[in-house]
Design a protein around this nucleic acid. Structure first.
Lengths: 249, 249
DNA sequence: CTGTGTTCCAGTGTATACAATAGAATCCAT
DNA sequence: ATGGATTCTATTGTATACACTGGAACACAG
């Protein structure tokens, strides 16, 4: 089939030639693992949302993203579908996809779910966790507590996340894990962490310790109850923040 | 760019020209609502899985599906990504996507989750459901009970599904809903419904009635407990079936 | 100034071409 | 015949062209 011979051999897996796209502000093109492009796009957009470089309600235009990431629309679309499935983005008819927005009632629903799911995770952890897993939990709890005194907000939030994720894993339930993950992401959309408030950060440490203790004692009921209370407090703190400042969304 | 002028104008939204694809056994191309093709592909594949025309472990090849549905790979890929996110399909490295398989431990994890989530749904329903919603639940329960005597397996299973879905909706929690849906689909993968067993079908009706009653009395605790027990029984029945015949997967 | 019709365009939906790759099949040497 | 290298092929990854759509901007009439 005679056809204009494409002179530029795409040379396949060249990742970052910056070939024709002069702009790519999003990309972080640096720490560029050799992931499939679709995966890369997903990670990158997700990160941007988590870091609040994209805010709730922002439009996610395929072409724009593709350009800024230096790839074509196809992998970007893959990423967008995944985001959609995670609930991190919503489809707006023919107006495209945008970062999810949560109204007030949704925030409530979100925390209700989280309260229950984390409670369940703790309950299961009390039943299922191995000794090594429990000592890991203990350690993470201690590290968090240490950071409360010295560390800054970002590190604190990260350690907190690690603690909770470890807790989820101790439940040994893949489905639970799959459900909690997007829930956290959604929460992340709501704004800065509660832990910026020192009082809350301190209380957090105490509550963590109590939960780990219950799990170590194999007290499923207690672990469940304490964890629910823990999330409930977080919910209260969140609502307070949401009302206090110029609480967006 | 000079190029062989494509003579056949794709004529865009022509839905079913059967243009060049002589085979399309999957498609049901008949009741062809004017859905976007990606949505259509998703529904269709989902349906095929639910109807066990695709079995656990079957490969889902993009081209094959595209041909049998009479469309291109692009919307099929969209559908596959959604399936993946639902957990109805799994990615196997570079060997493509296949219908999810569940090992024994996963079945356990699945039911543990369902027990909790449905319990939660019932609890919330007891707190949140409106009077109309409760009467709908009652009605569906009654319809199911009526079918136990006269109906056949398929109708029974469908009515059962309706009942449970109504229950979920009564919880008024979008996230809960989003989580329960894929769970059900996954369960569907496990094989024929439990309700083929008449004894189980009958017991089901009684349990439904008890749950609705608790919700109507606004007894959150009881609704939760009864529902957990309900699912627990279903789990037991399932496990029994899984061991009894030539239980595939 | 306001309401209505028209045009334009940004953006997505869809199809398809091409490249890369992993596993299967084949062939050769031992 | 068996082990290993090599080619082949089936299938996905990626890019891109083109068509369609709905909303926005604009123009015009009242």
């Amino acid at each position: 089939m005679p056809k204009a011979p494409k002179p530029v051999k795409p040379s396949a897996r060249v990742r970052n030639e910056a070939a024709n796209t002069p702009v790519k502000p999003l990309g972080s093109a640096e720490a560029f693992a050799d992931l499939p492009r679709g995966e890369h796009a997903y990670q990158e957009i997700r990160r941007a949302i988590r870091q609040r470089r994209f805010r709730a309600g922002d439009r996610l235009r395929e072409v724009e993203l593709a350009e800024s990431l230096g790839l074509s629309r196809t992998p970007v679309r893959e990423a967008l579908y995944r985001l959609l499935a995670d609930g991190l983005a919503t489809e707006h008819g023919q107006r495209g996809i945008m970062v999810a927005e949560f109204d007030h009632s949704m925030v409530g629903e979100l925390y209700v779910m989280r309260e229950m799911l984390e409670g369940m995770a703790a309950r299961l952890a009390a039943q299922m966790a191995s000794e090594v897993e429990i000592s890991l939990l203990t350690e993470l709890g201690a590290q968090y507590a240490a950071l409360v005194k010295s560390g800054r907000g970002a590190e604190l939030a990260e350690k907190n996340r690690q603690f909770h994720e470890a807790l989820y894993r101790c439940a040994h339930n893949r489905f639970l894990l799959k459900m909690l993950d997007p829930l956290h992401d959604a929460l992340g959309l709501l704004g800065d962490s509660n832990l910026a408030d020192p009082a809350r950060a301190r209380a957090n440490a105490v509550e963590h310790a109590a939960i780990v203790d219950a799990i170590a004692r194999r007290d499923a009921e207690g672990a469940d109850r304490l964890t629910r209370a823990h999330i409930h407090e977080a919910h209260k703190a969140r609502v307070k923040r949401l009302f206090a400042p110029g609480g967006k969304s």
